[in-house]
Amino acid sequence: MFHTCKYQQGTTLLVPVCLLLTLVTTAVVAYSKQLRHHAVTLQREIERSELHLTSSTSLAVTHNALGATMRWQTALSATQKSIIREHRNVDIRGAATTFFSLSATARSAASSLSYTQSMNVVRYPLIRATPAQPAIFSASISPNAEITLVRPHPDKLDFWSRDALASPVAVQHRCESTAMASCHALRPADTPFPDDVVKYIFGVSRSAFHADVLPGSNTLTDCENITSVRARIIWVTGSCHLPLGANLGSDDNPVLLIIEDGHLSLSSGVTVTGMLVTLSRASALHKDIIQHETSTIIGAALIAQPLSARSSLRVIYDKNTLTALQNAHYTQRTAFLTGSWHDF
């Protein structure tokens, strides 16, 4: 509202006052409009920030949910499933890999504003390639070490090794059954051995393969209380003794047991169902794997630390166990595909 001045005779001195009042009124009106404009703009920015947070949270929750289950079609909520715009399954060296296209839209209840964010993620197993042999050796093996490998298919080769085994002094053989019948000398696979077998199996270089790259794993310094561990991925830094009754893993929930820079011993009757991995980091000294004659490892073993002369390794190869471990929900990982993020 503008102030209007009427000029009369004798009021000449009021002219500057009227002009000043008019200017002030004009400035107040203009400032009020500008203030309202800034208030509306600020409100819209607040709304956009809230919508951005809502949509990004929806993506993150769905992303995490996909990594926690293999049966996402039934495990996810209706809202989470609505965010999945597309999915595609790809078989990579026997590993079931799934690509997901996710898109989340948040809408304001107070205005017509909306905010959409989208991204692509991939769900893949921690174990990229399951061993095709009962044992893989990427470190030196003493010729005195006793190795017994059992597999149900006698026409398959028995082990995969970086180096040729020295002429054995102890027993190194393969048997066609757990009854130790029809045992023969070990036969190595002739497939070229990879430069980094850890990367071949797990997709992570040996130097980068640590417990912290295995979310959901349990890290121990010994195996004194290992039976109380609920995690199916167990990383032991140091030596591990499995006492009588300390069975690990099952057909439905096989275990990934990793021993770093330590000895391993299995008492009478102990069974480890899944996959054993031994790693050498701080020391190149030979380490023991000592199993009682009634203890067994069912699945496969990756031996990546030197095996001592007093070792006795016994592995019963089981492809079904390895497949179950590879496809278990606790060995699945999800990752954001770089360059696929969009917001609008």
Rank of each mutant, 00 (worst) to 15 (best):
128 R>Q: 15
210 H>F: 10
90 V>Q: 14
335 A>T: 15
63 H>K: 11
55 S>Q: 03
219 T>M: 04
191 T>A: 13
325 L>C: 07
183 C>T: 04
49 S>Q: 14
214 L>C: 08
77 S>N: 09
261 D>Q: 11
237 T>G: 03
160 W>N: 08
15 V>E: 01
56 S>L: 11
9 Q>G: 01
59 L>P: 09
332 Q>A: 07
11 T>R: 14
132 A>Y: 03
251 D>F: 06
124 Y>G: 03
43 Q>V: 00
15 V>P: 04
148 T>L: 15
110 A>L: 11
291 Q>H: 06
196 D>N: 12
244 L>E: 14
116 T>R: 15
18 C>R: 01
237 T>H: 14
159 F>Q: 09
196 D>Y: 08
95 A>I: 13
209 F>W: 10
294 T>M: 02
199 K>H: 14
160 W>A: 05
184 H>I: 02
64 N>W: 00
122 V>D: 01
185 A>Q: 09
80 Q>A: 03
308 S>E: 06
1 M>E: 09
49 S>G: 13
272 V>G: 02
297 I>E: 04
191 T>V: 15
248 L>T: 15
44 R>V: 00
283 S>T: 15
250 S>D: 10
102 L>E: 04
81 K>L: 15
71 R>T: 06
175 C>T: 07
80 Q>G: 01
272 V>I: 14
106 A>K: 05
330 Y>D: 03
33 K>W: 07
306 P>I: 01
276 L>D: 12
179 A>N: 13
141 I>N: 06
178 T>Q: 03
136 I>V: 15
175 C>L: 03
70 M>E: 09
117 Q>A: 08
210 H>E: 13
308 S>I: 00
302 L>V: 05
161 S>L: 06
121 V>K: 02
33 K>N: 12
106 A>I: 00
125 P>I: 07
40 V>F: 04
117 Q>P: 00
155 D>I: 04
282 A>T: 14
269 G>A: 12
177 S>A: 08
73 Q>S: 10
93 R>M: 02
326 Q>H: 04
61 V>M: 05
70 M>I: 13
311 S>C: 04
55 S>E: 05
260 E>M: 08
126 L>M: 15
166 A>K: 11
256 L>V: 02
152 P>A: 09
255 V>M: 06
244 L>R: 14
59 L>H: 06
61 V>I: 15
118 S>W: 00
87 H>C: 02
238 G>H: 06
195 D>K: 13
5 C>V: 11
303 I>F: 05
7 Y>T: 08
273 T>G: 03
274 G>H: 01
256 L>P: 05
119 M>V: 13
142 S>Q: 06
143 P>Q: 08
4 T>N: 03
124 Y>H: 11
64 N>H: 11
137 F>S: 07
281 R>Y: 07
265 S>R: 05
265 S>E: 10
140 S>K: 12
163 D>M: 07
169 V>E: 07
42 L>H: 12
294 T>E: 08
150 V>G: 01
167 S>P: 01
65 A>C: 01
